[in-house]
Design a protein around this nucleic acid. Structure first.
Lengths: 236, 236
DNA sequence: GTTTTTTATTGAGTCTACCTCAATAAATCT
DNA sequence: AGATTTATTGAGGTAGACTCAATAAAAAAC
């Protein structure tokens, strides 16, 4: 038969180029289907190679995921570091971190979901490669918090690592809420709500504070009155 | 051979009993190995039956997980509801919810990890069965928050659902931190740290400013007194 | 330009784990 | 005791991760 299906033409590419190509396909496929649903055959097909080729570049499906994660974290860290350098004040820096994280979630949700699902609960995977990157990333927020305590902007009795967990955990859950409700994530509004709550707390301000200011004013009025009457008496 | 390996003796059991037995084994195996690592053969072996038997009680491995989750949530909801009924005041109720959740994590960590990993990121699974239970559970905290806003104990501009995410997300991340550091979870201390931060926020109280306002007024009163006596002395 | 060497690429094949189903035998009913 | 029901079995089927000897494209040597 002259019209037999053309077998895929073999082409050899420089190692680095093909590796990048496979990595790119992996990122796309994982992001779309999730780790469990994605097959190595899918990734190979997307990259235009055959399954075996993938395994000559990456030891396993898991290793492929780790490589994808590494790329994700590296750009995220670089962007966050750059952004933090351009913001002054602890409060604003925390607001920046929160917003940055929300934007990352919103713009690359598929991959974020995979990373959260696969990386966090898997101790083995953490030990291997991602733990250090994640530490470096969330360490950025941690340092801001520690500076806040040192400079007295933040309470001295807070535990920075707990606050960091509150920030990232809160963001994660809030984002999921949006995903389930099938609405677009309203980054700006959500970022403010989270930041306001974390910074200011949720219990109503001690109204006594307000009235004590008022009380101070009232006392000053009495002072004035007493001075007036003193003066009047001395005049008479 | 007379001493051939005894084949497993077949025993028929009431449907409900065997189902409970398999479910119990599933819970144990999932909890120990995680969903991905656990095999249906493992579960069957633990229950003392053969793989096929499992499938005559549960449609799939996934269905087995869902059943395990359902059991987990049902007791958790019942316990939390009971506990909340015995605590007065919004602040204390929130503290109770936080502590209860931490205790559940600490005492049944293996299963919690599986549920978080498998249930949350899997939309299909949520739709099927667990969404409603999770909603009911976290709804308990939500109602406390709403009551807090209604009665004026909490700020009126907070968004209860966001605070709920902050609470549960924060707990989750904080617990993971402990797991990675391979230390026992210090439930009491962590619960207080989380609750204090969420309730009171992290920025330093302006109450110091307020009290200094009051202090200033009191000093002014003393100034007035001195002026009075000065005047009186000058009169005499 | 031809031959040799190197190695990227291939695809057939292995293995493990989920799941199916016809056969079997334990309990129950008549 | 025999008939009936159905829980239980274990031998496959299938999908997808992973391996490896063969192949051919590029590079090197001549």
């Amino acid at each position: 038969m002259a019209t037999a299906i053309q077998p895929r033409r073999r082409t050899r590419r420089p190692r680095a180029e093909r590796e990048a190509q496979i990595l790119d396909s992996a990122r796309r496929v994982f992001s779309e289907k999730g780790y469990g649903e994605a097959t190595v055959a899918d990734i190979a097909a997307d990259a235009g190679v055959v399954e075996g080729t993938v395994y000559s570049y990456f030891e396993s499906k898991r290793a492929l995921l780790i490589a994808v994660m590494r790329g994700f974290f590296e750009t995220l860290i670089a962007e966050t570091e750059a952004g933090l350098g351009a913001v002054r004040g602890v409060e604003n820096q925390l607001r920046f971190v929160i917003r940055q994280q929300l934007e990352t979630f919103a713009s690359d949700f598929g991959l974020c979901r995979v990373i959260i699902r696969e990386a966090r609960p898997d101790l083995a995977l953490y030990d291997e490669a991602i733990l250090e990157l994640n530490r470096r990333y969330t360490g950025l927020a941690l340092r801001v918090l520690e500076e806040g305590v040192a400079t007295g902007v933040l309470r001295e009795n807070i535990v920075p690592s707990v606050i960091r967990d509150l920030i990232y955990g809160g963001i994660e859950h809030a984002v999921w809420r949006f995903v389930f409700s099938e609405r677009e994530i309203e980054v700006a509004a959500l970022a403010d709500q989270l930041a306001d709550s974390i910074l200011g707390g949720i219990v109503r301000d001690r109204s006594s504070e307000v009235s004590s200011t008022l009380e101070a004013a009232i006392r000053l009025e009495r002072v004035a009155e007493r001075l007036e009457s003193s003066l009047e008496r001395s005049m008479s």
